[in-house]
Design a binder for these strands. Sequence first.
DNA 1: ATGATCAGCGCGT
DNA 2: TTACGTGCTGATCAT
Length: 592
Amino acid sequence: MKKASEAFSELEFNTLLERLKKLTPEAEKEAHFEPSYKESSFEQISTELKKAKKVALNFIRESDEINSILLSFGDSVHVLEAAELEKIKPYLEDKKLKKLTFDSKPLIFALRFDEIRLAGVSFDVQLGAYLLQPTRTNYTASDLGFRYLKLYIGEGQDSFRQAIIDCYLAYHLEEPLTKKLTEGKLEKVYNELELPLSPVLAAMEYRGIGINKEELKTYSNELAQMINKLEEEIYRLAGEEFNINSPSQLSSILFEKLKLKPVKKTKTGYSTDSTVLAKLINEHPIIENMINYRELAKIKSTYVDALPKMVNPKTKRLHTTFNQTVTATGRLSSSNPNLQNIPIRTDIGKRIRKAFVPARATDLLLVADYSQIELRVLAHLSKDETLTKAFEEHKDVHQATAAEVFGLPVNKVSEEARRKAKAVNFGIVYGISSFGLAQQLQIDAKEAATYIEMYFNRYPKVKSFIDRTVSDAYKKEFVKTLYGRCRQLPELKSNDVRIRNFGERSAINSVIQGSAADIIKQAMINVENALFTDDLMSRMVLQVHDELIFEAMALEKSALSSLVKKQMESAYVLHPSLEVNISTGPNWLEAK
DNA sequence: ATGATCAGCGCGT
DNA sequence: TTACGTGCTGATCAT
């Protein structure tokens, strides 16, 4: 049983592991690990605290409030009442006393309410475990305790016991995890990127971003009316009422009742997604209404109605959570609410962005975005002269690609050709196949294959970079980014060619996307430091993969612009160099 | 009835 | 079936 569980874990077959756990009878979970703890007062631990070089730290919290303070010097976990926080404050703020944590960001966040700035966090179990295995879905005490300390820790502990265990693990996982990080040459990305980024993210979350609730409320009513009209029209054209939001009900209306020709299948029936609807647009008038309905319903339910509910009543602002241990590539993710997927493409969606505003109407939002960071990273890593030169000469890269691939002079590149070249560029970054490109461009696979062939003809070093990356990945079963961030690729060992192909695409994309993620993380740390050094009041509030959004004090607009541009462009010395565009406005729409 | 989970879908970079 | 995410609604199943 133990062996099998370990093997699955090793291969990161997460779902299999989960299933295995469910099958484990209670009896096999014997030898539960029981951490010892004792209720202590500040006086009882003050001597040890004074002489300590490091201490594991955790809190027991209820909503935003700290109930108990947990400290460990290695043996038993001390549980102190929250009332002792004031006495411990100087130790928490002392950067020379190393804090070992299980998950530092919530601790930093919790302390902010008591106006304590946690300093000296030298170890974070979650960040370390993530860098070692970025494709795992979670990093529980139970999994990590077993993996690195061979402890049997039951899942589903009550919150008190869990907090004690986490504190214990924060102390005792430091050595084995640090050793593994060193072995994997992950110290740089750990110490210089993830660890210092964590308090920056905490500050951004804490600050939040302003949103105009009333504007969204008005918009919700407008959308409701428009949706209502479309609904009636759809019912009329269908000849009956049905749940338009149900793909299965819609499918039977379109493909059974109205006898439209199915375009593609899903696991459970015929697809009704937007590409299918687009192909059916001339077959029946109901389709156009459906397309419009889908767009409005999506915007209303996901944004217009959802966001106002998430405004913090105390701060009147939206506070996202930036997840630092979720993505396979090293990107951040954002949740509750997700502020990394706010609409921008359509006019319907743009009104959402307009509702994102600074705290004071006199202030501004400033958006700083990296221009083509992923393609620049590709040029840098591949050292392809043609691609590098395009950036150095400040060309429109998609237009330049079109000129190369289609053999046209730049001024003869049509919108159509540029659009195709743009899809090819995206395809390269994602790890291309002619089938995928064909589907994207709605052309046949043969034509797509010639585009790809021509691309590699004109950018031979991109081709050799991709080949090198893939063959390296097969050899090592992992790939690394600019900063040494690692992604394991067990898919490359699969006997299934589709799974191996996925592994190959992941290899290419992870290096490029992950390196870009490294760079913007470095930039965030540097920008944050520079804001303090220059004593600016403006603050970074959001990150959306290749852009940073700031709340800019009106008087600081120009100082902030130059600071941000300078810090972002110098975050990493790339060849071709990094380029950042900056714009400002009274809301997020007008700052783009 | 209520909650958990999956499928389908579509928003962003 | 070109990468990486979050989250909505509806359907289904367990409680």
